[in-house]
Design a protein around this nucleic acid. Structure first.
Lengths: 239, 239
DNA sequence: ATATTGAATTATGAATTCATTATACATGTC
DNA sequence: GACATGTATAATGAATTCATAATTCAATAT
């Protein structure tokens, strides 16, 4: 090392006062948690299915410890049920669960709309309108899958505009549980049309920054969604 | 065994079709989870404090595995923060956290009131009125501690009357985090009086089963509570 | 042939062990 | 004397091991 290092430290070497960016280090269980949650929510593992501890360990190349830690957290979130000495199962969604979850989601979604109107920027509104146009195109083309993804993005953005992480995290947690139900296929044309109309009213309320109106629309929009999910659930019961 | 056992099975032996009551067996981590949560919420461990894994293991007489499983869940709930290789700390409640949590709690509490009015039985109303009388007595006697406990019971009962476990669990989770703040001592007399008045209006709305009114009262009641908690937090910051 | 009991197998819950990382302290250099 | 570097200690994350409970399957009795 050169003898004049301290005197010239700030000259050539990296600026130690602005430490690049902290290396993000994650623990295994945290990584697993995210992946498993994604798998369940995306339907890679269907409700009622046992969670094969051993297989998953092999698949992810980890030992049982972090996997089981992740499972405990998922159980706490309600995505899996954990029976002592009998391991983990993917939690199924009963009709009662749905009937409980939806009013709560309604309240949260309404709040999200209200707060979004109070905090959203013009740029964000523009971006949402843009997504809305995209979504309408998917509707015209009857591309259910893409419609759904864009739809979800819009709701995500409204949630983000509410600027409330507590709200976001609670809502996402509930939303994730619903998504398991795979209700997409069951959406009738009339419901779809209705949903699109509601979305148009949403955009209008958002532009006017009319929180109360947006809250109301979101609430009824969710009721519509509830019917779709309920149909799908009852249909799957009969298989 | 007697030869006529199958024919007379229900006679003398235990009735196998109604198996008494299932033995409730809990896992260690589940037990720990509950205890730790209680300890944190009750303030036995103050925010910022490190969680001494080793010591707790000794205290509860368990190994680190179930303890750490419980800590992961608590971290997910937001009660502790878990930094890789640096262990667990009791999560502190910043002012921002509070400002985020309260609107959400408001929405949930309002929903709770609405649903309670739709589902509550006369017996439950009677019980709540009884608790209310008790609480008023504690108010007159200026017994803050007892007042608070009875108060909490009343809110618990309303939540129960809403008949929605999803709602209950979300609300309790938020409520628990707030309770860390130890805002009790800071309640001014005027606020206390105000709170009592609000409670009287609550009871009236509940008896009339006026969901909208109760929702509104609960919401503003919570806003009042928010101010108290905020004061306490700011006061503790200055120490 | 069917049902029930008991042994073998499998898998889970918990403890222990191992390796890695952070913290505390001491020594050396400027 | 202050700061940095190196070393020792302690604690954490993850793997492995161990014990116990559940499931499976075969054998026996009805």
């Amino acid at each position: 090392m050169s003898h004049d290092e301290t005197a010239t430290m700030a000259r050539a070497g990296a600026d130690t006062s602005a430490p690049a960016e902290p290396i993000i280090r994650r623990t295994l269980h945290d990584e697993l948690l995210e992946r498993l949650r994604q798998m369940i929510v995306d339907g890679d593992m269907t409700p009622g299915e046992k969670v094969p501890e051993k297989e998953l360990c092999a698949r992810f190349g980890v030992s049982r410890t972090p996997l089981r830690e992740a499972l405990k957290v998922l159980a706490n979130e309600g995505l899996v049920t954990l029976t002592p000495n009998r391991g983990a199962m993917i939690a199924g969604l009963t009709l009662e669960d749905l009937e409980e979850a939806f009013p709560v989601m309604g309240a949260l979604e309404a709040l999200s709309g209200e707060m979004a109107c109070a905090n959203i920027t013009d740029a964000e509104i523009a971006r949402i309108k843009q997504l809305h146009e995209q979504m309408m195109a998917h509707y015209e083309a009857r591309e259910l899958r893409r419609y759904f993804r864009t739809n979800q993005k819009i709701h995500e953005m409204i949630l983000t505009a509410a600027r409330n992480r507590t709200l976001s995290s609670l809502y996402r947690s509930l939303e994730g549980r619903i998504r398991q139900a795979r209700y997409l296929a069951n959406m009738s044309t009339s419901r779809w049309t209705q949903a699109v109309r509601e979305h148009e009213r949403m955009i209008a309320a958002l532009e006017a920054r009319d929180g109360a109106a947006l809250a109301q629309i979101l609430k009824s929009h969710l009721a519509n969604k509830f019917e779709t999910v309920k149909d799908a659930l009852e249909a799957s019961k009969n298989t």
